[in-house]
Amino acid sequence: MVALFVLFIALVPFCLGMFVRTILDTEGQNLADYYICGFLTLIVVSGFTQLAAILLNYSFSWYCSTLLVASLAMSVAGIVISVALNRFSIKQQKKNYRDHIKGISRGGNVLGLMIIAFVFIGVLTRILLSSSILEGDFTLETINTCLSTDTIYKYNSLTGEYIENGMPIRQQILTLPVLLGFFIKTFGLNATTFVLKVFPCFVAFLYFLTLHRIGTHIYPDNTEKRLTFTGIFAFMILVGDISLKAPSFLLIYQGFTGYAFLSCVCLPYLFSACLRRKWGIAAVCIACEAFTIWTTYGVGFGVLVVAFFVIALLLRKVIRKTPGRGKEQPGKV
């Protein structure tokens, strides 16, 4: 079952990403985009499935089977439509890969890549060897409650008693614990190990993938600078647990929480989408945030990031029009 889980987590987000790309009709994406966007979409699909289960009073088992069917169906649809509309070109991906390898093949760049890999292993090591901080979070209790009662947010996660007085709807749509419960139930995984160790490592992997995507956008052709950017960024992740809410701290000690996923994957990927003006992907990130952490009825950090970006673009237009600004260096590739 572990092998099935690995197969699922390797392929389904990728194929979901192809499905989303087809709908949003976005160009200029690479394999990392497919995967990250696909996993964010999986969370959104999980959120809507969970909402349906809660409103229609269906069980956790219903949610699991529906999510499995929906994700597989969308993945197959993504492959079929992408191939039919020629949106995913294997030839183009091979060319991108060859260019990538050519850029890395110089000695200094290979060393840079090895350093980044070493730093990534350092992050994983810190996650695996550090004690998780469970205070202020009840993800594991929620998962165990779903598994033992076969319901979603019908029983108090902290006491196990039936919820008489209801629960905030913004709490009921938080789907990350329930999605983790889906993986545990469907693939027979050990709850504690998966939640406290495996999933944070996966979040770290997505974080590095996101940062690679940002680096690829900023430096599409300059491999040396891209590796420098990625290396410094990665090093700051490794040693950057500067406060209880810093993304690095959350990643290492609470990588299973919605806050860690938001600050390490969702917001950085949204940032990269805004850099590339991919507003459709930004919408996916904002929807994912609403299902991951407590927001003010959908208005969360993602909306603020987009708002700041729009303000920044307007500011630049105004400054450019202002006389005496002087010549600017164009954004270097």
């Binding site: 009840f138 594991l140 033992s148 902290l158 006491t159 007085n165």
Partner: peptide
């Protein structure tokens, strides 16, 4: 207890001493 096994119910939850958790449920 409930981290170990979801079957174990408790007379009161962690929100009694962890005030960060008091937002989650309306149960007094």
């Amino acid at each position: 207890a409930r981290i170990y096994d979801g079957r174990i119910g408790l007379a009161y939850g962690r929100d009694l001493w962890e005030v960060d958790l008091d937002y989650a449920f309306y149960e007094p």
